[in-house]
């Protein structure tokens, strides 16, 4: 379960201060999926970063599975992020000179998992995104859709509780984008990991059970059973 209480985020100080998030309060049920919808500059990415423990809020609280994220010391927060959260980025952020397998293993490498176990888990993750045959290819040799599937494998390899995806299909054509979308929803169903996707795409957002719409840093619409304020 994710509880967000009165979240504010301001960049800068004084006259040049810019408020990215204003009094955001929302609760998402355990195992639910949710889309954060909004136009460019609406604060949707910032909200995701704050929930995911990447960007410290100016005030307010984020509680994930009864743990207050921003009350943790930095080191603990790093470990928390590694264990609890999976990330999918629009721009992939794969290390092109490394193999697909190496890329997928990174979260486990950071966690300090022994190599053989790391490899085993990563192979299982690649199997679930149907890319096992590419595991020894360099990441740079893959197509966009394949790259995003590698990123999905990397996001689930650490068995996270929540997967955050920032415009996961933004760089893909509609067909491959559709495949990736289906894959994400399957994951949400099969692994019980919560799925939170940031997007400006209404069509994509409609496929989610829950969604919130952001404008100028404030929630203007909230849809779905799993989401309450």
């Amino acid at each position: 379960m994710i509880e967000i209480k009165n979240l504010n985020k301001t960049y800068g100080k004084g006259n040049s201060a810019f408020t990215a998030l204003k009094s955001i309060t929302v609760t998402l049920e355990q195992g639910a999926n949710m889309a954060i919808l909004g136009k460019s500059g609406s604060g949707k990415s910032t909200l995701m970063h704050v929930i995911a423990g990447l960007d410290r809020p100016t005030s307010g609280e984020v509680i994930i599975n009864n743990v207050s994220v921003w009350a943790m010391p930095a080191k603990k927060l790093d470990a928390f992020r590694n264990k609890t959260i999976g990330f999918i980025f629009q721009a992939f952020f794969l290390q092109n000179e490394n193999t697909v397998l190496e890329n997928v293993m990174v979260p486990l490498e950071i966690r300090g998992v022994p190599f053989s176990k790391r490899r085993e888990t990563a192979i299982a993750a690649l199997k679930s995104v149907d890319l096992l045959d590419k595991m020894n290819n360099k990441a740079s040799d893959l197509s966009g859709g394949q790259k995003q599937r590698v990123v999905i494998a990397r996001s689930i390899v650490g068995d996270p509780d929540i997967i955050f995806a920032d415009e996961p299909t933004g760089n893909l054509d509609s067909v491959t984008g559709g495949i990736v979308e289906d894959m994400l929803f399957d994951l949400n169903k099969n692994t019980k990991a919560m799925l939170i996707v940031v997007t400006h795409d209404d069509e994509l957002a409609k496929r989610f059970d829950n969604r919130i719409v952001l404008k100028d840093g404030e929630i203007i619409e909230m849809v779905g059973k799993g989401v309450t304020s």
Binding site: L54, D78, R81, N82, F93, V106, I110
Partner: peptide, 16 residues
């Protein structure tokens, strides 16, 4: 820069 950012996002500590 990107690699470091990714590693940090995925939980690599500042110390590491």
């Amino acid at each position: 820069t990107k690699e470091i950012g990714l590693l940090k996002a995925l939980g690599m500590s500042n110390k590491a």
